[in-house]
Design a protein around this nucleic acid. Structure first.
Lengths: 188, 188
DNA sequence: ACCTTAAAGCAAATATCTTGCTTCAAGTGT
DNA sequence: ACACTTGAAGCAAGATATTTGCTTTAAGGT
C-alpha cells in the first residue's frame, strides 16, 4: 500500500486516487501494460503527473497498488462438502487465475513495486484468509485438518513458485495433486 | 538472458558486456541499487547509454541479467554423509543467502526485468541442479530419495514463497523443518 | 587483404521526472 | 457560519533519461 494509506479518508485525495486507479485499469485494457507511462495515466485521470510522482513515487508502485486490488478475491470459497474437495476447488481456481498471463502480470507487479513488502504480504494474507474459511468449515464438520501455514507451504507456495519460476506446463491437475499429497487418500 | 545470448562470442561485444556488468556490480556496491541509472552505468563502463538501451532495453533487464549471474551457485553442495543432512545443509544455506536483503533484492531483480521468464527459469534450474547432485549422491548410497520436483515443491517453493511474500521471522530452523517433513524421522 | 555485417558511437529530438512555489479544499476551532 | 491550518494538488521550469537516424568500428568469413 506504500503511501496510499495516508490519504485523507474522504474528499479530494480519495477522488484523485480513485480516478488514477481507474485510469490505470482502462489504459491497461485499451493499450496494454507495456504502453503505460505516468504522464499517460495522469492525462487520462485528469491529474498532473507530479501528483502521481508525489503520491506513488513511480509507475511500478502505482501498478503494484492496482495489482493488489485486482488480486483481492471477490467471493468466499465454495462449500463442496468436504475439506479435500473444498481445497481442490479453491486451488484449481487459484492456479487457473494466477497462471493466466494477466494473473502472472498482476503478481509480478504486486511484488515489484513494493519496497517494503506490504503489498506482497497482502497477497499472502488474501490466500490465508480464504484457506482459513475452508479450514474452519472443516473443523465445523469435525474433519481432521492441517493448519493454515501448512496449506500455504504445501499447496499455495508450490503453485506460486511454478507460476513465477517455471511457467511451463501448468494445469489444474497439478493443484489437485498438491492437495492430495497434503490431505490425501491416506487421510493425511 | 533476454538479448545477451545473441552477442558474438568473443571480441568487442563480449568486452562491452563484461564491462557493463562489472560497472553494475561496482556501482551497486558503492552507491547502492537505488542510485543506479543507465547513463551512470554507461559512464562507468566507458560506453554510450544508447548501447545499453539497444542491448538490454532498460535498466531492469540489465539488472535482471546481473542478478541471475549472482544467483548462480558457485560451489557443489557439501557431502555430509546422508540425504537428510545434505538437504538440510543445502536448504539452510539457501535460505540464509536468499532471505538476506541482498539475496531478496537479486531475486526480485531477476524476476522483474524478465519479460519471457527465462531468467526466472534459470534460477529454478540452478536450484534443481544442486538438488540433483544431492539426490544422485543419495542414490549412490542406496538411500531412498524423492524426485527433484518433489524437493522443489516441498523445500524450495515454501522458502521462496516466504522470502517473497512473508519475509518476517524466517530462520534456518524453518529450512530444517521443511526437509524433515519430506525425508523425515519416519524415513519418508 | 578485402567484404560483410552486427554492434557501438554520436548527437539531436523527445519524453519523462523532479522540484520550488502557488492554489485549493478538507478538517478544526470559535 | 466564519476564518484558520494544513496536507495535497496544480503549474511550470529545469534537469535527466530515453529514443532514433546516421556514421563508424571491428569481428568473422572469403
Amino acid at each position: 500500500m506504500s503511501r496510499k494509506t495516508m490519504v485523507r479518508p474522504g474528499g479530494r485525495s480519495a477522488r484523485v486516487q480513485a480516478s488514477v486507479h481507474a485510469a490505470v485499469r482502462e489504459l491497461e485494457a485499451e493499450a496494454g501494460r507495456e504502453a503505460l507511462t505516468v504522464p499517460l495515466v495522469a492525462a487520462r485521470a485528469g491529474v498532473t503527473p507530479s501528483t502521481i510522482y508525489r503520491r506513488w513515487g513511480d509507475l511500478q508502485e502505482l501498478l503494484s497498488d492496482v495489482a493488489v486490488e485486482r488480486l483481492r478475491p471477490e467471493t468466499e470459497p465454495q462449500d463442496t462438502g468436504s475439506l479435500r474437495s473444498d481445497l481442490e476447488a479453491w486451488a484449481e481456481q487459484f492456479l487457473e487465475e494466477m497462471s493466466a498471463p494477466a494473473g502472472r502480470a498482476y503478481i509480478r507487479d504486486a511484488l515489484l513495486g513494493d519496497p517494503d513488502g506490504s503489498n506482497a504480504g497482502q497477497c499472502s494474507a488474501y490466500a490465508a484468509e480464504q484457506i482459513g474459511v475452508i479450514l474452519d468449515r472443516a473443523a465445523g464438520r469435525e474433519e481432521k485438518a492441517p493448519g493454515v501455514d501448512t496449506v500455504l507451504d504445501r499447496v499455495v507456495a508450490p503453485m506460486m513458485y511454478r507460476i513465477l519460476f517455471r511457467p511451463q506446463g501448468l494445469d489444474t491437475a497439478y493443484a489437485r495433486r498438491l492437495v492430495a499429497g497434503l490431505v490425501g487418500p491416506a487421510g493425511r
